[in-house]
Design a protein around this nucleic acid. Structure first.
Lengths: 150, 150
DNA sequence: TGAATTTTGTTGCAATTACAACTAAATCGT
DNA sequence: ACGATTTAGTTGTAATTGCAACAAAATTCA
């Protein structure tokens, strides 16, 4: 069977590595850009949801958010409807960073897709969405301590 | 333009997370399986080459290898032709782990590709190889301190 | 040849990452 | 209503990760 795990892993590490190096110029530490863009796109999102969509442990997301809050890039406000939730928002400083990150990501995306026709790009994106959906339930399962048989 | 960065990142994190959790049963810590399979496939490989093909900092690979050596999973021998190189090999213990990791990876790969026809699988694999080649020179460049303009 | 550069590997930091274990609030089930 | 369970977030601890800065061997090239 065709092998896709490995190239997905290597490409992801390469892209993440590039972003982390480039965003040090913005005083962003490793991984922080991931949360910043998600909060920009979903203002008021709560921690557990953020952790799930980024596919990271919730304690990892929690500490990244704490750090970004301390650095004035985002802020948390208690939810008006649920006292145990904290809604996350970008500050003005965070808002200013967002377009810079988006531009870098767009550049990397264009580099990754160099030589692809528009139809090929769309098809690859569609394939990846299907892979994402396929793997998601296993990730949730294993994260919750369930066992996969193979 | 179609967006592929994000699903590649989320799928890679989900798959890596699953593997790390499952391989704790083999007494492998986070990330170690990556190096083990590469050494199995390229016995005698040296550290710098390993770091490049895995797309990780060479100091990260160095410490992972040190740990795996200390745990008796692989061993290093001085290269007969270049006194600064150390060739890396699996021990018998490492050899025993390899097929287990391969089986898990094959299962995850099959899960990721569920619902794909054989032709679609091949096409996705081909696309990913192209993306990998596209992004590789940028990764090398940025890792070496060069600057990308965008 | 022999000095300058590149290759290969190592430590010193400082940071992220995540499994356990926990608290508090909300929701569920009877 | 109310006890059990789930949701949401935190802290303790132990590990990886990776940028700097280094050392030693090999290679380049003038």
């Amino acid at each position: 069977m065709a092998e896709v795990l490995r190239p997905i892993g290597t490409v992801a590490r390469a892209l993440d590595s590039i972003s982390n190096i480039e965003f040090k110029a913005l005083d962003l530490n490793r991984g922080q850009y991931l949360y910043l863009v998600r909060v920009a796109e979903s203002p008021g999102i709560i921690l557990e949801r953020l952790a799930v969509i980024v596919r990271v442990d919730k304690t990892t997301a929690a500490r990244a958010i704490q750090k970004l809050e301390k650095n004035g890039i985002l802020e948390r406000r208690p939810s008006p409807t649920d006292k145990k939730q904290k809604q996350i928002f970008l500050t003005a400083k965070g808002q200013a960073l967002y377009p810079i990150i988006k531009r870098e990501n767009a550049y990397s995306n264009a580099t990754a897709l160099k030589g692809f026709t528009p139809a090929e790009r769309d098809q690859l994106a569609t394939y990846l969405k299907r892979v994402e959906a396929n793997i998601n339930s296993d990730w949730i399962k294993v994260k919750h301590g369930e066992h996969r048989d193979y």
